[in-house]
Write a protein that binds this DNA or RNA. Structure first.
Lengths: 417, 417
DNA sequence: ACATATTTTTTCGAGTCTTGAAATAAATAA
DNA sequence: TTATTTATTTCAAGACTCGAAAAAATATGT
């Protein structure tokens, strides 16, 4: 943060600029990169040469450049050069995904871990699953592939410098340095390891999905999801803002009612008491189903009843929409987000939430007409968290292409000109 | 943002590093600067030479360096080299402060502007007041002085790239580009002009005051104040985060009760309806005083009654503390701030707010014991906004010392060695 | 077929940085 | 006076970007 700057920093930034341009604007020639980045032709030549050395970029054919003139030699990212490992740890299982830089999935691995609260066997399952995925990658991937990073997403706050420590309260691993444990247990995996918050990753993934679909990029974006619990994430300039204790965006316990029902967090009127699964099931009159067949089944039944037009179910979602509206106003009042993305069943049931949500927010228009956030629904479903973890690694690499080492020099005369 | 980097950026950053070190650690020698910044001695020599050229730093005597050895030549900031103009526009008046880089006030200027809502005469008063202050500065300040910036703080959101536009709703200047108007009206003042939000500036000032007092710097800090209205600011890494529409921290309309009293913003249960001046006066049974003598007088009477132990007044503040606690939990849930600073009468009456505040927050400890924010009270009172505007200019200059031009070369032989 | 125009890409010299080592400056201790 | 120690400056080297000029590769015109 307060280290002196030198020419290496300049180089890093300009390499990133070129790589980002190629990533965003597809295969294109050096001239276009120069025009798009503001760099001079001579610099682009040198920068591209370095990216080619590192195996991140490759020349791929020429195209005539309209009329006469030397044809442009297209530059293309080499997605298979980089392998990214993303893991998601839930209360019941571990999922690991290995993907190349383009997002093409190379390998998937899952493992349940039905270990009691606080049991280290859950951790063993995590390690085992990651190990198997890493081994598969080493076995199957191209010999040039560079394993860039492993990112583990899980519930709970993540604190410490550079997101080093994960205290996963729900697992009974309070104050456990999961990152250190993973690094220790996987000495063969010599890439950086990061532990991050799952909802933050889902937020990032949905944001990128929307951006890819052509939506503009507001400075600040909030993500609110509900499935087995209520959580969220806050993005500033497209990056996760995790707060002073790694808890930013954990809005399940946002108070929206002074004297609402008591929450297990100890206070009253938390958002989770209005839009969480249990309150919804209760409000829709499905307690009996939840009792006998479990929460998952009750939510599935709620979905059926909504689609059948059941008035109790509809009313339950209407009230939840109202509460969600209050939360949205709260989030906007504090951080002035330009866009709110709803995930989990908030996305699935958007149709039934929308009326209450809009009603609650409508009044506000009187104060600041053009500062209402856009409300959109997430499209990634349960894959959001893994995709977000992947995206984080990708961003890190796009920010610093020098983290990828140069390819070994090819044998002399391998591809003569 | 996406411009290529070059050696000028490196220079800018390292100049800033040296200047910041001198600012923070007082007069010290080049060796100490090198040790403190991580720069090599040779670089420090060159960087300091440039800062001396620009008139920002001066050599000031030598001190023996403990035992034998060449004495260290102390380097000292030249505070009078830079003049900063900070203005605050309230609903009734304008205040302008000219200060040198150290914060030493060179000139103060005030003007009332009792103009009706939307009347451009208020704007004329603003321009006149700034003009007089600027003229006084030019007249009195040292001939070397460089007027670095004018920052105008006012109520209302500030939007646009680089905070260009201020739509000051309360003044009836909706969608007015105050910055452009000021620049047009003051052609003689050829320094950058910025328009910013007043509560954000107060937040910044209180943050710096606390930091100077030795409190550590949490990543995220929120400021909540109440005086004639309820407002606030959000700081991330010591910088104002103004949000997608310049409204971040405007937490007066944070909803804390689903079915609370209706607010003029159109929704229900806004924080301002619980801790704003009118609700407090009403709860303390002082409506009659407010009616006959105005809100200011009623608040003064409330202060007297609090200090006299009046039970109604005490109860009113207790309830407000409870509401404030809900808001604090909300702010923390969304942004996970590490510190909350209370300003305005929330600071003055902290003693009476504290019980309700603590009670409301106490329950939360069950969930995340060590993620509670520290709650502190602002110490700057009504001067916070002007000081914050000043601080913003100061930060901008510390970030980019090259914005100060080189001094004209002194006459040859002026100070022979 | 050959010269020319046009567009892309590379080469080359200049200018700015930081850096590390060596030289210089300015004091005290012996 | 001489040696030692500490602070500061000088100098050459290395890394970047940049602007201009040269080289490369194609289409067009005669």
């Amino acid at each position: 943060m307060n280290a002196p700057a030198d020419s290496a920093d300049v180089r890093r930034r300009n390499l990133a600029l070129v790589l980002r341009h190629l990533d965003a604007h597809g295969p294109c020639a050096r001239t276009e990169v120069a025009a798009g980045t503001g760099l001079v032709h001579a610099s682009v030549t040198a920068l591209v040469a370095e990216l080619i050395d590192r195996g991140l970029v490759r020349e791929a054919g020429s195209v005539p450049s309209g009329g006469r003139g030397r044809p442009r030699r297209l530059l293309r990212l080499v997605p298979e050069r980089v392998v990214i490992l993303a893991a998601q740890v839930t209360l019941e299982s571990v999922h690991v995904m290995a993907a190349d830089f383009r997002g093409h999935v190379l390998h998937r691995e899952s493992a349940p871990h039905h270990a009691p609260y606080g049991d280290p066997r859950a951790l063993a399952a995590v390690i085992g699953c990651v190990t198997r995925a890493a081994e598969a990658v080493v076995r199957d991937a191209s010999p040039d592939a560079h394993v860039a990073q492993l990112t583990v997403a899980m519930a709970g706050p993540v604190v410490g410098p550079g997101q080093l420590v994960a205290a996963a309260i729900d697992f009974g691993w309070h104050s456990t340095d999961l990152r250190a444990l993973v690094v220790d247990q996987l000495p063969g995996l010599d890439c950086p390891v990061d532990v991050v918050n799952d909802a933050n990753m889902a937020a990032l993934a949905e944001y990128h999905a929307l951006a890819a679909a052509g939506v503009r990029h507001p400075e600040t974006v909030a993500y609110i999801k509900a499935d087995t619990g209520v959580g969220g994430g806050l993005l500033v300039n497209g990056r996760v803002h995790s707060g002073s204790h790694g808890m930013a965006g954990e809005i399940g316990h946002l108070p929206i009612a002074l004297d609402g029902p008591e929450c297990r967090c100890g206070t009253r009127g938390c958002l989770a008491m209005y839009i969480g699964p249990e309150p919804l099931i209760h409000a829709a009159g499905l307690d009996a189903v939840a009792e006998s067949e479990g929460g998952e089944a009750a939510l599935a039944e709620l979905d059926r009843r909504l689609r059948a037009g059941d008035p109790d179910a509809t009313a339950a979602l209407g009230a939840a929409g109202h509460a969600l509206g209050a939360a949205v106003l709260g989030v906007c009042g504090v951080t002035d987000v330009g866009e709110i993305i709803l995930g989990g069943y908030l996305a699935t049931w958007g149709k039934w939430l929308r009326p209450g949500l809009d009603a609650r927010m409508a009044g506000r228009r009187a104060l600041a007409p053009d500062t209402q956030p856009d409300i959109t629904f997430g499209v990634l479903g349960t894959s959001a968290t893994l995709r977000g973890a992947f995206q984080t690694c990708r961003d890190a690499l796009l920010d610093d292409p020098t983290s990828v080492p140069a390819l070994p020099a090819p044998p002399v005369g391998a591809t003569p000109p």
